[in-house]
Every structure is written in C-alpha cells, then in structure tokens.
C-alpha cells in the first residue's frame, strides 16, 4: 500500500553512521520496519531484489505444473492441481505488492524478469516429464519452499513478513497434496512406483539447490542476517530439509539418489542428522546463469503471456477512463439523481 510519492521522499535518507546505527538498533530490538520508515538504501535494494525474485519464482513456478493440468488422471487430482497453481499466482501477487511498498512498480519488475535481469528460483527451469513430477514437486519443491519461508514470516520488513504468513498458510496444502499423490503411485503398479522413483531421482538435487549457494559462497547471507531479513543460513535450512525429508522418502519406500546419505548422530549439536553428498555446483551456476534445460522456454512463456495480455490491460483501462468521464458528465449525474 502507501503512495509511491511518500516512498520517494525517503529514498535519499542521509546515511550517516548515526543513522545506520539507529536503524540497526531498531532491528536488534526486533522492531518491524514499515514501508515509509527511513531505511538504508542497501536494505531497501536487498529487499526489492529478494522479494522480486521470490515473486517471479511463484509466477514462473506455475508453468511446470500447468503443463500437466489438462492431463491429470482424475477430476480430484485436477481440481487439487488447479487450486495449487492458482494459489501460486496469488503468492506472486502478494509478493509483488510487498515489493511495491519499497518504491518499485510491478511493471518494472516484470520488465526486469522478461529482460533476463531479475532471477527466479532455478528449480523451475527443469522439465516436468511425467505425472509423478506433480507429486515430487508438491512434496519436495513446495516442501523446500516451506522450509525457506517459515522463518521469513519473522522477517524484519513488515509487508514481506505479512505476505509470508499468508503464503505459509496456503503452502501446507501444496505439500500434502503432492505427498499424497506420491503415496498413491507408490502403492500402485510397479510401473507407477518406478515413475515415482524416477521423479524423485530427477527432483532431489535441484530441490537441495533451492536453498542457494553454500554459506561459504553466499554473497548476501551475512548482511541479510544482521538485518533480520534471513534468520538461518542456506546450509542450515538445507540440512533441516534433508533431515525432514529422508523419513518421508522411507515411508514411501523410495530411495534418495545419494549414495553418501548417512545418519550421523553427532550432527545438529548431538541431536543427529543426515550427512549428504556434495551438490553439483557447476550445474547450479549453469542453471542460475540461464543455461538450464528450460530457461529460454520459461521466459518465452512469460513474455508471450505479458504481450498477449497487453490489449486486455489497455482495454480495461480505457473502459475505466470512459466510465469515469461518463460519471462526471453533468447530464449523466442529473439522470442518476432523478
């Protein structure tokens, strides 16, 4: 919310050491920062980048699953998938709105996405080859997203935190419908169970990559934690995800495609946890830099939607203009009164 005019008045907060210290003190006292509050330029830019990427991920993330909507095997699965994809569109909208409170417009963010300047989660550049992928995505991709997003509900920036609360409430259904789909396949024929295993094999490593680069290579982690935008490091969240997911795979009777996966009772300060193999970081960076299996197709699909929707946006605005002038026409007003 909040007019952009007000936002702009604060864009140029003088960043004296006192100002920065005062801001950090507010963060340290767990105060929330709200849209028109003075904030360091770097805090604003970090949030615009992170929330924008997050919003793009929700929107681009609709594409892999939309691929299977018309081919869902039952009406029950189809309605669930449709509802999930619709939710993701809503998530994108909540997040674009949160980013807009920082003084960037949704049009600008969309243009940056289409121009390849803004990133989105690299997982959505992988293809959905079988129906089982609808299960694996809900279970693993939404599962990893939840792991990332729950701590963001306590993010220091109010609008982002509030958007995340709404999103997290909805994500749980996404993960559960995916896991339930996996259960059906794993209780089905051998071919169906093989399909589920194949899907896990393809989505496991990209899901681990969703948590981003390792802490030692992460550009933004330290400052983001100081500002309480992030509460946990990438590696901490990745570890939590692995620990939570292995048991779920065992329950399905599926095997996680990692020969180095092993229980380690000393992990997590003695609570125990899983050791796991090294992520293929070359693949990760390749996909991030635009050379994944479907990067081009995803942006092409978004560009097509944006361009083909242009006349609808224009027509809606033209109609609104026309209604407005009709309402201020004195003849028209007289008619209404009588």
């Amino acid at each position: 919310m909040y007019s952009q005019g007000l936002n702009e008045s604060n864009l140029a907060s003088a960043e004296t050491p006192e100002f920065l210290a005062e801001f950090q003190a507010r963060i340290d006292a767990d105060e929330k920062i709200e849209p028109n509050d003075p904030m360091p330029q770097a805090y604003r830019q970090t949030l615009i980048r992170q929330i924008g990427q997050h919003a793009h991920s929700e929107i681009v993330g609709m594409l892999p699953e939309a691929n299977w909507l018309t081919r869902a095997p039952t009406l029950r699965r189809k309605t669930a998938l449709l509802a999930k994809v619709q939710d993701e569109g809503g998530h994108g909208l909540y997040l674009y709105s949160a980013a807009e409170t920082l003084g960037i417009s949704r049009e600008q963010m969309t243009e940056e996405l289409l121009a390849g300047k803004a990133k989105y989660s690299s997982i959505f550049n992988y293809p959905t080859l079988s129906w089982a992928d609808m299960g694996a995505i809900g279970w693993l991709v939404d599962g990893a997203a939840i792991m990332n997003q729950v701590p963001l509900c306590r993010c220091s920036y109010g609008p982002y935190a509030r958007a995340m609360v709404r999103i997290c409430k909805e994500e749980s259904f996404h993960q559960r419908q995916g896991y339930e789909l996996m259960i059906s396949l794993c209780n089905g024929t051998t071919a169906q169970k093989d399909m589920a295993q194949d899907s896990l094999n393809r989505w496991w490593w990209p899901s681990l990559m969703m948590f981003g680069p390792s802490d030692s290579d992460s550009l933004h982690s330290d400052q983001s934690r100081l500002w309480k935008i992030k509460r946990f490091t990438n590696d901490e969240l990745r570890q939590k995800f692995v620990d939570a997911t292995v048991k779920q795979a065992q329950h399905l009777g599926l095997e996680i495609p990692d020969p180095q996966l092993a229980w380690n009772e000393n992990k997590n300060d003695g609570a125990g946890g899983y050791d796991f193999g090294e992520i293929d970081w070359d693949e990760f960076w390749r996909v991030v830099k635009g050379h994944g299996p479907l990067n081009r197709e995803r942006i092409a699909a978004r560009t097509k939607a944006w361009e083909e929707g242009a006349w609808v946006r224009e027509a809606a605005l033209a109609y609104a203009e026309k209604q407005k002038s009709a309402n201020t026409d004195p003849n028209n007003l007289a008619q209404k009164v009588s």
Partner: peptide, 13 residues
Amino acid sequence: RHCGSLHAADAQM
C-alpha cells in the same frame, strides 16, 4: 481489516 493490495483498472474488477 487491511489484508493487502492489488492492481485493477476499476472498482468492480
């Protein structure tokens, strides 16, 4: 209660 924002061309939309 305020719950968020959105873009729309007119009030009905």
